[in-house]
Design a protein around this nucleic acid. Structure first.
Length: 579
RNA sequence: CGGGGCGUAGCGCAGGGGUAGCGCGCAUGUCUUGGGAACAUGAUGUCGCAGGUUCAAAUCCUGUCGCCCCGACCA
């Protein structure tokens, strides 16, 4: 490609809308343009990167035996009503009506559609296992889109779905995708980690997330310092361990605590260790099953003052559809006092207590009365509790559930997520097939997603410097840029052209910056856009019979002989020295 | 959805009742050519939108829309 006839507009200043580095650099490099909140155009340079990521994904999906198809973006409400998600998916599902007042949505994911397809096409175990995938634009009306391609409302996703006649088969299909995902992120040159994850609104029995490690990541990951165990903090198991305090149980005593409300304030005010000042929170759990009905229930959760409650865990314990902190007015209604004075004694709601509180005695709790706390409370003696549960976030230093070593916390960007769905959708939507015994049984499913744009963005989060992006060769918009330094020098132009043409013929994805600009402008653009290799053809070096090759990542400069097969030498450098 | 902030040229910003501004970028020319040169000339705006106040509104008032940031969701 000749840059003079291509379509690249770089920007010197950082657009004020961009907060994170990948967003800033993608805008400055002219790869994307914002259309609306969380909705972006992919400009030619950005699209090239997207396509490269897509192709890596496609290759690895095919290699794993998955088969590509393409489903509709617009989906009828009926399918979502069948699965039961029309009412549960929430506002993220963008709904609308056609001219005939029929209800539709923009596909945020395709379990319903794919299950409907398979239901109509697959009748026998002989047609399975089968894994189908597509690479397509999704729409989720995110509460808060941000960070450019990192969390868009409209985004490109690879989604795959596996179908097996039994659980054992489904596990094999799952494992194949797991391996393929590792291969994809390795091929993209991303340092990543696979972690245990919560299944969220997709549902299913277990799942793994693929996390690109980056400090700017939105997810907290707890990893064992010794073994392989890693989990999203939402999921990370906290091992119930500790030693019961042997302190003598003192009589409980109500104390005035003025306007002290938070655990920290109260602990300080009373001169008590924060560990002995648990916080009590009221949580609203929606969609809790009671026989055939679903109800909204409010519960009280207690964790140590220095711990944080984990709503995902609470949700799972209650088998609820959602768990959120109750609104202040709801707390007032339920308990009759404000948020800062809650406690388990005389609590009208069921009290779920974190395991860590098993081990402390003589604690301080809110009196459910404004301005008062109760000292020397011992839960088993003084309160009626539902039991002890793992309902808090893990923190660094907690013990690994697998080997007992300590957790450490890192941050990551979720670029892939795989779920073992089981029969959740096949049952609700009636996707069944005959097994070997001629019995009609629900198909066992898995689903598997990769955020394509997010993968590209996280590659930048992980690889940049003060001058710009550092693409890995696999997903760079161009592998090589050839820069004729002196555009008024015919010999330079000719040499640069030769090299460019030869590289092109050798199948290298190469751009020649043939603009009549000063060297600095072109160099800065090349650095910003982040081509892995820059070839500078300049008058001075050429006079000495040299052409300069710069490796973007290492800034290593290699002078190569300008005579002979220059392109081949560049190709060799590209193949051997560049990631 | 709650809290905070911002809407003026492609980008970054200033201005704050009386002619629409600056820097970068863009165009033309001269000159320059190994790390964002210089000079000259020039083009580009519903001052987010709608009402209102006023002789006069980018500016004041009311409403509205959009965007960004901080908290609960997800690829």
């Amino acid at each position: 490609m000749r840059q003079s006839r291509y379509f690249i507009q770089t920007m010197r200043e950082i657009p004020s809308e961009a907060e994170v580095i990948s967003h800033q650099l993608m805008l400055r490099a002219g790869m994307i343009k914002k259309v609306a909140a969380g909705i972006y155009d992919y400009l030619p340079l950005g699209l090239k990167v997207i396509r490269k990521v897509e192709n890596i994904v496609r290759e690895n999906m095919n290699k794993a035996g998955a088969i590509e198809l393409l489903m509709s973006v617009v989906q009828p409400a009926e399918l979502w009503q069948l699965s039961g998600r029309w009412n549960h998916f929430g506002k993220e599902l963008l709904r609308f009506k056609d001219r005939g007042e029929r209800e539709f949505c923009l596909g945020p994911t395709h379990e319903e559609v794919i299950t409907d397809i398979v239901k109509s096409q697959v009748n026998s175990y002989k047609q399975m296992p089968v894994t189908l995938y597509q690479i397509q634009t999704k729409f989720r009306d995110e509460v808060r889109p941000r960070f450019g391609l990192m969390r868009g409302r409209e985004f490109i996703m690879k989604d795959a779905y596996s179908f097996d006649i039994d659980d054992a088969g489904a596990d094999i299909s799952y494992q194949k995708m797991y391996d393929a995902y590792r291969a994809v992120f390795n091929a993209c040159g991303l340092r990543h980690k696979v972690v245990d994850a919560d299944t969220g609104s997709i549902g299913g029995s277990f799942s793994h997330e693929f996390m690109v490690l980056a400090d700017t990541g939105e997810d907290a990951i707890m990893s064992c310092t010794k073994c392989d165990y890693s989990a999203n903090i939402e999921k990370a198991v906290v091992v119930d361990s500790g030693e019961k305090e042997t302190a003598e149980l003192k009589p409980k005593e109500e104390v005035a605590t003025q306007d002290k409300h938070t655990a920290v304030e109260v602990a300080e005010f009373l001169g008590v260790d924060i560990k002995h000042v648990p916080k009590t929170m009221i949580i609203r759990c929606e969609g809790v099953a009671y026989g055939k009905e679903e109800k909204t229930v409010f519960i009280a959760c207690m964790v140590r003052g220095d711990h944080e409650v984990n709503l995902a865990k609470v949700k799972n314990i209650l088998k609820a559809k959602s768990a959120e902190f109750a609104e202040h007015y709801e707390v007032q209604d339920m308990v009759g006092c404000a948020v800062g004075s809650l406690g388990p004694v005389n609590m009208p709601l069921k009290v779920y207590v974190d395991n860590a509180l098993k081990y402390v005695s003589n604690i301080v709790i809110g009196a459910n009365k404004e301005g008062y706390h109760i000292k020397n409370v011992n839960l088993e003696r003084d309160a009626k509790i539902e039991g002890y549960f793992d309902i808090r976030n893990a923190i660094a230093g907690d013990k690994c559930p697998v080997c007992g070593a300590e957790y450490e916390e890192t941050r990551g960007i979720e670029v892939g997520h795989i779920f073992k769905l089981g029969t959740k959708y096949s049952e609700s939507m009636g996707a069944k097939a005959l097994d070997k015994n001629g019995k009609n049984i629900p198909i066992v499913m898995g689903c598997y997603g990769i955020g394509i744009g997010r993968t590209a963005a996280s590659a930048i989060e992980q690889n940049y410097d003060e001058s710009g992006i550092i693409w890995s060769k696999a997903i760079a918009p161009f592998e090589v840029v050839v820069v004729p330094v002196n555009t008024n020098d015919e010999e330079v132009i000719k040499k640069a052209d030769d090299i460019y043409e030869s590289l092109l013929n050798m199948g290298v994805d190469v751009l020649i910056d043939d603009r009549n600009e000063r060297a600095g402008v072109k160099f800065n653009d090349a650095d910003l856009i982040g081509y892995p290799v820059r070839v500078s053809v300049g008058k001075k070096a050429l006079a000495e019979g040299k052409v300069e090759v710069l490796i973007r990542r290492t800034k290593e400069v290699i002078l190569i002989d300008a005579e002979g097969s220059v392109a081949e030498k560049i190709k060799e450098i590209l193949d051997t020295k560049v990631l």
